[in-house]
Design a binder for these strands. Structure first.
Lengths: 116, 116
DNA sequence: TGTCATGTGTACTACATAGTACACACTCGG
DNA sequence: CCGAGTGTGTACTATGTAGTACACATGACA
């Protein structure tokens, strides 16, 4: 599922019970031209900038991190976290590359609960 | 310390006992114009592309991840790791944002040793 | 004293990114 | 049957990225 087809499906699902989710109206609320959103949804142009993707995510009640990933991007915020301690995070990420989801979740929980 | 001044100092240090680390010769081995390397080292232009930074790192025996971070970038390789499971890694990174170095190291070791 | 290598200034360029502007064709309710 | 709203095609543009090409001034050294 590409970025474009994903947001198109999401928008059409929302339009099911709310006609204000037409392409034109969503584009207006997001702050871009309807023709541009149309091309984005059909994958005719590259996905928008991070800022625009965030506004689309908010409008469609989607996870920004997920939409950004579908657009082939990683949020600038996460990049900054990595860049503060590049080798530590580089090694950690490479280490976790093949770890199963539940292992990642366990680490998240452990760190959150602060038991270390 | 900026990206430019850092690689300049590194290069000049190496030139101390090996004159083949002149700006021109390094530029040639890296595969870029001397004038361009000069401007990069003095911060007169933005840092090079990831590929060029990697070749500079190899030439100067520096850590690519570190130089990339100094250039305000995160390697495409790490970004791909994140994009495979965006929300999991997003939450993990935000969680680890304020964690001390030794905590990160502990996790790296734990994952490497596979004790889970 | 010339020449060789050094670092740097200036001008230019190809390509990618992130869109805008406007016209067009369709369709559906009043 | 018409007008409002819908999605889309075409053309254009401003800014950023990632450099190249060439000329110039300097200093060492043989």
């Amino acid at each position: 599922m590409t970025f474009g087809s994903h947001i198109r499906e999401r928008r059409e699902a929302l339009r099911g019970d709310d006609p204000s989710f037409s392409l034109r109206q969503v584009a207006q609320r997001v702050g871009i031209e309807p023709a541009y959103l149309s091309k984005v949804e059909r994958g005719q142009v590259a996905p928008p900038s991070e800022a625009t993707i965030r506004r689309i995510a908010a409008e469609l009640s989607e996870e920004p991190d997920l939409l950004l990933a579908m657009a082939g991007k990683v949020s600038r915020e996460l990049q900054e976290i990595i860049m503060r301690r590049p080798q530590l995070f580089a090694e950690l990420l490479r280490q976790l590359r093949r770890a199963p989801d539940h292992a990642l979740l366990r680490i998240v929980r452990e760190v959150r609960d602060g038991d270390w």
